[in-house]
Every structure is written in structure tokens, then in C-alpha cells.
Amino acid sequence: MLHALRAEWRREWVQLRRYPTELLSELAVIVLVFYGLFLGGSYMAGGSILGGRLSDIIVGYTLWTLSMMSVGTMGWTISNEAQNGTLEQVFLSPYGATFILLLRNVAGVVIGLLFTILTLFSVMAITGHYLFVSLWDIIPGLLMIASATGLGYLVASVTILMKRSQQLLNLLQFILLFLIMLPTASLGGPWRWLAIVAPFSPVVALLRSMMTHGAALFGTGNWLLWSVVNAVLWLLIGLLVFGLAQKKARRRGNLSHY
């Protein structure tokens, strides 16, 4: 299994290196966004950096991009590999396609995270403004990416049956953005259940109370617990649905492009 993870990792890396324009354009976006945030941040603070607020924005932005990556990667992989005539070979792996797709997602997230950290440090060095990002942010970050991976399997399921998923992805991004904007923590009554069950909702509430109210990870009421439940729930739903979709595609005999 470790060999498979290394293989995924190497494949991503080789492709990035071989096609540096794609790598550079991706990097350029992150650098520009961060640079803009830093400039804006120091301007708003009247020359002195806005400290905590700015680091929150950067953490939020990074989590959002990594999560959206996890939502889209597996579906994109499937349609791309079906087009290129390699999907069936992936399905010949004795580890199973579900696992290989997960590895690919992990490899993508780790590379994305590395880029972000690298960029963050260079932007900090250039502007001379240093930020403090709490290491505790990693836990809600992981939970968010776990939920996103569950959604990613759902997108992958649609892709494997329909061979495309762009519209679904656009719609999903819109819904997720809406869910993130929702003031989940202050909702009452039946809406509270929505805040717990809807993807990303509890983890956003968790992050919010950590960031804006400076609460410690374990001092956020039940939000940490609900975030774990939510992540596990969406991951399980994703795995279950993808298992069924895979079976159906095999029954139809159209794993590749038929």
C-alpha cells in the first residue's frame, strides 16, 4: 500500500515537473492572492499588520481551495483517464479503484498544501510581515478535507456513470459556499440539525469560534464532536455510493468510454 501511495505521489510530481507552465500558473495564482491579502491587510490596518484577522483569511482561503480540490479531483481523474484510455488499467489494481482514487486525492492535497506553505513563507519574507498560524488549525482542516473527500466520491460516482460532472461541480461549489456563509452556530430549532448534518457546516462553526472568538480547539462546545461525526458521515456516504456506482458501471460494461 505504501508503494502505491509513493507511486501516486511520484506520478503527480513528475507531471508537475514535466509541464512547468501548469505548475507556474497555479503557483502564480496563489502568490497573487496571498500578496493581495497581505497588502490589503496592512493597508486596512493602517500600515501595521492586522495579525490574527489576516492569518484567518489565509487559513480560510487555503482550506477552501484544498477542499474544493478534494471535491473535484476524483471525478476529474475518472473523466480524464476515461478519455485517455487509462481508466481500466487503474481499475485492474488489486487494491481497488476506491483506494487508488483516495491515494490520488491525498497526493494532490499534500502537494497543494506544500505549495501554499512555500508561498506563504516567501510572501512573508518579501513583505517582511510575519503571521502566526496555529498548528491546531490542522485538525479542523483535516476534518474539512475528509468531508470534502466524501463529496468527492459522490462526484466521482456521477462521473463514472455519466462520464462528465462539470455542471454538478459548479452547482456543488455554489451550495457549499452558501453553507459556509450560513451563520450555523446561531441557528436554532430544526435548523440546528442542518448545521450538524450539512457538509462543512459544523467544521466551519468550529473554525469560526476558534478564530473570531479565539476559542481553543477543545473549548468550542460540541462543535468538534459534531465536526468529527459530520466528516465520518460524509466519507461513509461517499464510499457507499461510489461502491454502488462502480458496480453499476461494471454491469453496464461502460467503465471506459462506450
Binding site: M1, H3, A4, R6, A7, E8, R10, R11, V14, Q15, R18, Y19, N84, G85, T86, E88, Q89, V90, S93, P94, Y95, I100, S256
Partner: peptide
């Protein structure tokens, strides 16, 4: 080796393909 499929990553070299396809079948690099 399936028909009507490339069966390989065209952007990679044969050696890189072997590393990948071997890896997801449990072989070390």
C-alpha cells in the same frame, strides 16, 4: 492490454509508467 485504449500515460516515459503501474500493483519503485 485492452483494445482501443492507450493503457499508458502518454505524458510519462516508459520507465515512469512502469513505476506507476508497478506501484499500484504493490511493487516497490
Amino acid at each position: 492490454v485492452l483494445e482501443g485504449s492507450r493503457n499508458l500515460y502518454w505524458r510519462l516515459t516508459p520507465l515512469e509508467n512502469f513505476e506507476y503501474w508497478g506501484g499500484i500493483r504493490g511493487l516497490s519503485r
